[in-house]
Design a protein around this nucleic acid. Structure first.
Lengths: 335, 335
DNA sequence: CTGAAAGCGCTTACAG
DNA sequence: CTGAAAGCGCTTACAG
């Protein structure tokens, strides 16, 4: 039997007798066989093209982070024949839909994307899946779409954790303000991460009924508009939860108005958030390691396609709690 | 000019004219050149042998974790010709020294080790460095030895963080107990991690002098011996700091004696520690991701030797704060 | 100091 | 359905 025949069997390329298939499988079973990945890729001589489909980072500091991770991965894997094309959209669902149509028309070997807008993302993914290429989602998960990898936090649990951090050390009867501060209330209110965090937050207090009574107020704020926050909102408030990275806007208001003794919990390692963490205005930030999500997203596609490794389809990022004393060790991308 | 000549230049293997070296360098500078790593390794056809030199894990649950990470890396990189030999010692400096002599006699392409005992490790490393092969340290760092990679926490800062967590939410005048609970007081007291954590812990309170007055007591406890902990030690104590993974022993005592309202901070994601974290006896655990340290240690050697990549010589693991609500997302090894 | 040649282990187009 | 052969890009021993 020649190497050609064996190769056809190993790769299921057909055109072989059942008899030979069994022979080869028996031998592999007995002696084991690990393909030399260097030789394989050298001979295969294929270039891999990945598409990255994300919101643009202009004015959205948060989305720079996954792009940094992706860039690092791109640089690292370029020597293995990986190239990356980027498709950006404005942070609204019209722009998303437009770019989604474009992405659907093009052919790639793998796709990395963030399902920001729920309905649009479901529609897009259902369609894209027909191409039958590996897809990896970061940032938020769409559990109803199967066989698509996810790398990111469990948003519900991260809200639940925020509940714990808020309740921790606060007095027995507390008033809690949830500030839903967004760029564009219309479309953000549809995003999955945001809603799941708030659900998880409430769940914490519900499930820990032994906790003293807490009182909740919600306010909606558009961060573009001025004077949306008022001192009246903060009257009698003991703690504030901001379920996204815009917590620095609230922190700024608290500091400027010298509102003392309010516990503040929010998300993400933005430069501005760090300033208020250092100041002591923000108590805790929950960090979702967006650079690492980006890096791992590309690395996931690389491992699956280039190395043909088995890769996990669901990688939950740790729910990292950041305080002033540990944040500086949470920034580098590993590997 | 032949490929042979070019190769000699690129790899500095000599036997080429200065003139040719310049020609080739000029061309590389102009057009760039990235060696095809698949072809390179295929032709190089070298197997890499790494030595892993760690305390044995019998009775030391903690040391199982890096071994798990190492095993995962070993499995993953085996197809790239990497094999690993293990050298274990009992957790005392006599056993360490004995095994160190053995390791010094053998030849490997890379070494992963943990400098548990300060003086012995300095002596060992100074000697081993003469072999001129890549070395990576995990768990604790010896800063005085240069050009040796380190993957692990900043132990001093982790103690500092513990100070913050202890002080957080505790009343203005508090009594703090530091329980130095070890298997073998003699040799553990010489280990670097342990001492640095305690230093960092005190530093937090010193540097934050605006904090209310705190009162500190230290006790030394051997965990093998019975009845070392007494309720008297805990009289009037508001918070306990245990600077290692043996915090569960203290937690057990606190629970059994029903000592209420004591804040407890310790280290590491041991099964027993988790039980008390879930119980609410332990408030915070600082997690140093030992599996990941092991995995990354091997991966560091792999990248440096097999892929010939530039790798960072100092990778600080995040100082992860674990509470009941987030620990389950901190266990998996990424990549 | 240089170049031609063999070989690393796999993939694939092609002739039969 | 099968096998022989060329080739992927690099490394290295060898003859000159």
């Amino acid at each position: 039997m020649s190497v050609g025949t064996v190769d056809r069997i190993i790769h299921n390329r057909g055109q072989v007798t059942e008899e030979n298939i069994e022979k080869v499988n028996a031998i592999i079973k007995e002696y084991g066989f690990k393909k030399n990945i260097f030789a394989s890729n050298l001979a295969f001589n294929k270039k891999f093209k990945f598409a990255v489909f994300l919101p643009q980072n202009q004015g959205l500091e948060y989305w720079q982070a996954p792009l940094d991770g992706i860039a690092k991965a791109a640089e690292e894997f370029s020597r293995f024949g990986v190239t990356i094309d980027y498709f950006f959209y404005e942070y609204d669902n019209v722009s998303f839909r437009k770019m989604a149509n474009k992405v659907l028309k093009l052919d790639y070997d793998g796709l990395l994307f963030a399902p920001i807008f729920y309905e649009e993302s479901v529609a897009f993914l259902s369609e894209y899946k027909k191409k039958n290429i590996p897809i990896v989602m970061i940032d938020s998960n769409l559990q109803e779409i199967e066989e698509v990898a996810y790398i990111g936090q469990d948003s519900y649990q991260s809200g639940y954790l925020a509940g714990k951090l808020i309740s921790y050390g606060v007095k027995s009867e507390s008033n809690i303000l949830i500030v839903k501060i967004t760029r564009d209330i219309e479309s953000t209110s549809k995003t999955t991460v945001y809603l799941q965090r708030i659900q998880g937050f409430y769940a914490y207090f519900k499930e820990n009924a032994f906790l003293p009574k807490f009182n909740f107020t919600e306010v909606n704020v558009k961060d573009a508009a001025k004077n949306q926050l008022t001192t009246k909102m903060f009257l009698g408030i003991d703690a504030v939860f901001v379920p996204n990275s815009r917590v620095h806007i609230v922190a700024k208001f608290i500091k400027e108005n010298n509102l003392l003794g309010i516990r503040v919990v929010g998300y993400d390692l933005l430069k501005q958030n760090l300033d208020y963490l250092n100041d002591g205005v923000i108590d805790f930030l929950i960090h979702q390691k967006p650079e690492e999500q980006g890096y791992m997203g590309i690395s996931h596609l690389y491992k699956k396609l280039v190395l043909k490794e088995d890769v996990k389809n669901m990688i939950y990022m740790p729910l990292e709690i950041l305080v002033k004393e540990n944040y500086s060790y949470s920034q580098q991308i590993k590997l």
